[in-house]
Design a binder for these strands. Structure first.
Lengths: 215, 215
DNA sequence: ATCCAATGTGAAACAACATTCACATTATAG
DNA sequence: CTATAATGTGAATGTTGTTTCACATTGGAT
C-alpha cells in the first residue's frame, strides 16, 4: 500500500516515540518490531530502513529519557536560588516527569533493557551518576551557604534525596497508580528537610552541629 | 537416559532453586524452561510433571523470596528492643539478604515478572505492603516510647526507611557491584537518624518538637 | 521527462520457546 | 513377581518475534 515517504530523521523520532508509548501503556515486552511498525503506520521490515535493529530502537527511547532528565536538571539549577528550594523544585519536576512519561519507571525497574548489554547499562549508570552529581553539587552549595548541615557528605545526602522518590515510584508503579505519589513525596520531603536542614534555624546561624546531636 | 526418579516435592524445590540461580547469574530472561531443566539435570518436558507451566515456576521463585522477607521481619521485631536499634538491625538484614540472593533486586527491578499478570503483581504488592506495615509498626512503637519523633506519620517514615536501601540497591545493581552498598547504607542511615530521632536527646526528653524547627 | 537514491512492501527464513503427547522407565505397594 | 502410578524422554507442534531480501514506489534533482 502506498504509504507516504518520510524523511528518515522524522521517521526515527516517530519510531522512538511509538516505542515509548508502547512501553507506557503495556510495558517493555509490548515493544515488538511489529507493534511499533503498526503504530507508526509502517510494515515491520520498514523499520530496518531507519534502525539497524530492535536494539537501536530501544537505545533511541533511552536517549529520549536521558534528554528529559538532563534537561530537568539543567533548567532548574539556578545558583541564585536557595539550594533547598532548588531541590524541592527538582523533586516536583521528577514527579511530574514520571507522571507524564510513565515509561520511565518501566525502564528504571526493568532489567531486560540492561541485561547482557554492558554498554547500555554503563551508559545508563553514567546518566544516573550525572544526575546524582548534579544533586550533590546543589547540596554542596547549600552547605557552603549554611542552609544545609555541613557534617554530612554531600553525595550521601544526594543518595538520600533519590530515596525520596525512588521507592515512591516503585510502589506507585506496583500498585498501578493506587499509591498516592504526590502525597507520599510531600511527606517524605518534610522528613528530608528534618534530616538535612539545621535543626533550628533561628538559634544556630552559621555553624553545623558537629556531633552534638548524637551520643 | 536413565535419570533417577525423584519425588515431585523435592523436584519442585530443585526447579525453583535452579530458576533462582539463573536469575541471579544472568537475569530473568535467562530463565527458560530448557535452561532450568538442564540445570536440574532433566529434559525440558520433564518440568511439566512438576509444574503446570513456566509461570508457576516463576511463582515458586517469588514464594522463596517472599518467605525470606517475611522471615527477616518476623525474626527481628522483638518488642523488648529499642525500636531504632530494631530498624538498624532490619536494614542490615536487608542488605545481607540482597547480597546473598542477588536475584531479589532482579525481581524487584524487573517488570516482565508482573506485567500482564495482575494477580501476581497484586500478591507482590501485598508483600511489600506487609513489609511496610511491619516497619511502620516498629516506628509507631518508637514514637510511643518517645525514641522517635511523634510529629511525623509513622507510615511515611516507613517509606523513608525503604528509601534508605531501595536506591542503593538499584545503584548497586546497575553498577554491577561497583557501588559500595554497605558504606552508602551506613551513611544514609545516619541521615535517617537525623530525621527521625529527636534533635537533641539530652535536652528534650518526652516531647516531640511540633513545629518549632520550621518557619 | 527521466533517473536515482531513499523509502516502503510482502514473503520467507530463522531462531527461540513453551507446551503437548505417546511412549519408556522406575519405584513400590500388594 | 507384577501391576500401577509416578516420573522421565524425545519428537513434534505451534507461536511469536526478528531479520533479510528481492522488488515496488515515491520524490526530487538534473
Amino acid at each position: 500500500m502506498g504509504t507516504k515517504k518520510v524523511d528518515t530523521e522524522i521517521r526515527r523520532e516517530q519510531i522512538a516515540l511509538a516505542a515509548l508509548s508502547l512501553v507506557e501503556k503495556q510495558g517493555l515486552q509490548a515493544v515488538t518490531v511489529t507493534r511499533v511498525a503498526r503504530l507508526v503506520g509502517l510494515v515491520p521490515s520498514a523499520l530496518y530502513r531507519h534502525f539497524k535493529g530492535k536494539d537501536q530502537i530501544i537505545d533511541a527511547v533511552l536517549d529520549l529519557i536521558e534528554e528529559q532528565m538532563i534537561t530537568n536538571l539543567a533548567e532548574i539549577d539556578n545558583p541564585a536560588d536557595d539550594p533547598v528550594a532548588v531541590l524541592r523544585n527538582l523533586l516536583m519536576r521528577q514527579v511530574q516527569m514520571v507522571l507524564q512519561y510513565q515509561a520511565i519507571p518501566h525502564f528504571l525497574f526493568s532489567e531486560e533493557v540492561f541485561n547482557g548489554r554492558p554498554k547500555r547499562k554503563k551508559k545508563f549508570f553514567n546518566l544516573i551518576s550525572t544526575f546524582l552529581n548534579g544533586v550533590a553539587s546543589i547540596i554542596r552549595r547549600g552547605q557552603e551557604q549554611g542552609n544545609i548541615r555541613q557534617d554530612r557528605d554531600a553525595k550521601s545526602l544526594a543518595t538520600l534525596f533519590i530515596g525520596l522518590f525512588h521507592p515512591a515510584f516503585f510502589l506507585w508503579h506496583l500498585s498501578d497508580g493506587q499509591f498516592d505519589l504526590t502525597r507520599q513525596i510531600n511527606l517524605t520531603w518534610e522528613s528530608f528537610v528534618d534530616a538535612v536542614v539545621r535543626c533550628d534555624r533561628s538559634e544556630i546561624q552559621t555553624l553545623g552541629w558537629k556531633e552534638t546531636h548524637r551520643d
